[in-house]
Computed example of a mutant assay.
Amino acid sequence: MTNILSFDFGGTHIKYGVVDTDGKIRTKEKKRTPKTLESLILLIKNQLKQYSHEGIKGIAISSPGSVSDEGIIYGFSAIPYIHGPNIKKHIEAETGLTVHIENDANCAALAEVWKGAATGKEEVAVVVIGTGIGGALIKNGVIHKGDHLHGGEFGYMILDSNNLGSGMNTFSETASTFSIRKRVAQQKQIDISSITGEQIFLKAEQGDEVCKQAISEFFHMLAIGLYNIQYIYDPELILIGGGISTREDLIQQLNKELEWIERKIDAATLIPEIDRCYFNADANLIGAVYHYLQKTS
């Protein structure tokens, strides 16, 4: 069995592990994210030595930013030194192994297509909900990056054009978990840092009307965004990722909102098929390996 050393670059930690070509994680660990590119490459080389007995054949990387096929990571992230230089060539020169890099949201989507909730499907949209909204498009079983490497950046969609620049216009601003906190903080006139999403859902269950309304608006705007994605791209399936995806009532609430939208829009002929992502913390490690295998096959 061929093994790949997979890395998931994060702003706080670098996760890494040995993953075989069947997508099984044989071992995994994490370390604090290094402060420099040189230290990052040293970390990678050290892990290669540590796992030398595993017969590592290549290196797969999940990274923030817009990743070109050449190995340059454009954009900005919490790891500023990875943007600019050709990371792929740097690591290949230092290790002597083939390296392939992909955007982290794209890796999460690839994991779902390979071994997760979208196995066997060719046309899939993945919407990752957190402080903002990111995502990925799968077309014919592979990532669709677009001409400017912005394929799947659903968070930029404008859902409310009123008072542009107000901070409540885009999909990210109106349908992320941060948007729930923002609505509650504004209504209660409190500091947004003083309340969490979990607390808001708990208060809503206890009858807090402000929290209930904020959650209702969140589901409504999220459903509008999913409706738009369905008619723009027409995927077989839309998967929801991020911490909110673990809520048991998520799919039920979204389907309720989507059915309401369909009734209101005369031209609407279908309701998106939605589900939650299967993988959570390990998705990027697995998806990075699938991307590697696609590139080397």
Rank of each mutant, 00 (worst) to 15 (best):
M1Q: 13
N3F: 10
I4G: 02
F7Y: 11
F7M: 02
F9V: 13
K15L: 07
Y16P: 05
G17E: 10
V18R: 00
G23M: 05
I25N: 05
T27I: 11
K31M: 15
R32P: 07
P34A: 04
L37C: 09
L40W: 15
I41R: 10
L42H: 13
K45M: 09
Q50Y: 14
S52P: 07
I56N: 05
K57I: 15
G58Y: 14
A60G: 06
I61M: 11
S62H: 10
P64N: 11
D69F: 12
E70T: 02
I73Q: 14
S77N: 12
I82S: 07
I87G: 06
K89G: 11
H90M: 07
E92A: 14
A93N: 15
G96H: 10
I101M: 04
I101E: 11
E102W: 09
E102A: 01
N103H: 10
N103Q: 08
D104M: 01
C107N: 09
C107S: 11
A117C: 10
E122N: 03
T131W: 12
G132T: 04
G134I: 06
L137D: 01
H150G: 03
G151V: 03
G152I: 00
E153T: 06
F154K: 01
Y156M: 11
Y156V: 07
L159N: 04
S161G: 09
L164F: 14
N169T: 07
N169W: 10
T170Y: 12
F171A: 09
F171H: 05
T177R: 00
S179I: 03
R181L: 12
A185H: 10
Q187T: 09
Q187V: 08
G197I: 02
F201V: 04
F201G: 00
K203C: 03
K203V: 03
Q206V: 03
V210G: 06
S216P: 08
A223F: 13
Y227V: 14
I229W: 14
Q230S: 11
D234H: 01
P235Q: 03
L237W: 11
G242E: 00
G243C: 00
G243L: 02
I244T: 03
I244N: 02
Q253I: 06
K256G: 00
W260M: 08
I261R: 10
I265T: 05
I265H: 13
D266Q: 08
P272A: 00
I274G: 04
F279L: 01
A283K: 02
Y292F: 15
Y292E: 09
L293M: 12
L293H: 08
